[in-house]
């Protein structure tokens, strides 16, 4: 398999997972906000429903942004693309994809520093030792209402960095002619083809 084909396949697999995540997140948001307001009729308040919905919304923002990048439907100023000759526009698209991948990889590196798995392993997975040595309290952060470990939710950031990089590289491979681009590479099935 060529490198273009490999990227295409990984990107398609990740997009499948992301679409599933996005649908579930939206369902959870709608369900819990609705449940909370309906139960209020009976004087019941689920204290954690709003918090759960907010965290799902945060995650959905990043999952959706990653899919939008693959589909190339995120808002951008494409004035120049419209006035330059086609080969130049293709060059610009490749540049944008390369820079997007660069951003994704940088963000992933920052997330690596943040979660610091190497230091955690060195501390023998003992969180208090890890905290004293690194001043990093990520693993004992909790959400205010549910008191859940917050790092489960923070994991969306490295995941976003990873999927963004892969999607950007897949877009780059397609522009470079290494592999053909589908009409709907992110599988979003929007009614009209993206710009």
């Amino acid at each position: 398999m060529t490198i273009g084909r490999i990227l295409y396949r990984i990107s398609a697999g990740l997009a499948w997972v992301e679409r599933l995540m996005l649908r579930c997140l939206m369902l959870v948001i709608a369900t819990f906000v609705l449940l909370n307001v309906l139960l209020r009729l009976f004087g019941i308040t689920i204290a954690w429903a709003d918090e759960l919905a907010v965290y799902c919304m945060i995650m959905s923002g990043f999952v959706g942004a990653s899919l939008m990048l693959r589909a190339r439907i995120d808002p951008a100023v494409l004035l120049v693309h419209e006035v330059v000759p086609a080969p130049v526009a293709r060059g610009l698209r490749m540049l944008v994809s390369a820079l997007s991948a660069g951003f994704g990889i940088t963000l992933f590196a920052l997330c690596w520093r943040w979660f610091d798995p190497a230091a955690l392993m060195q501390a023998g997975f003992d969180v208090p030792t890890f905290e004293v040595e690194t001043f990093n309290f990520i693993y004992t952060d909790t959400t205010p209402v549910m008191a859940m470990p917050a790092y489960w939710f923070y994991l969306i950031m490295p995941w976003f960095a990873l999927t963004l990089s892969v999607h950007a590289l897949a877009n780059l491979a397609e522009d470079a002619g290494l592999v053909a681009r589908d009409i709907d590479p992110a599988g979003l099935d929007l009614q009209e083809a993206p710009l």
């Binding site: 649908r23 899919l67 979003l188 099935d189």
Partner: peptide, 20 residues
């Protein structure tokens, strides 16, 4: 519903990612 939820997610992420 699946398609509607997906489109909802994409279109709200458009705004949410900008806010982030």
């Amino acid at each position: 519903m699946g398609a509607i939820l997906l489109r909802t997610g994409i279109n709200s992420a458009l705004v949410l990612f900008l806010v982030a």
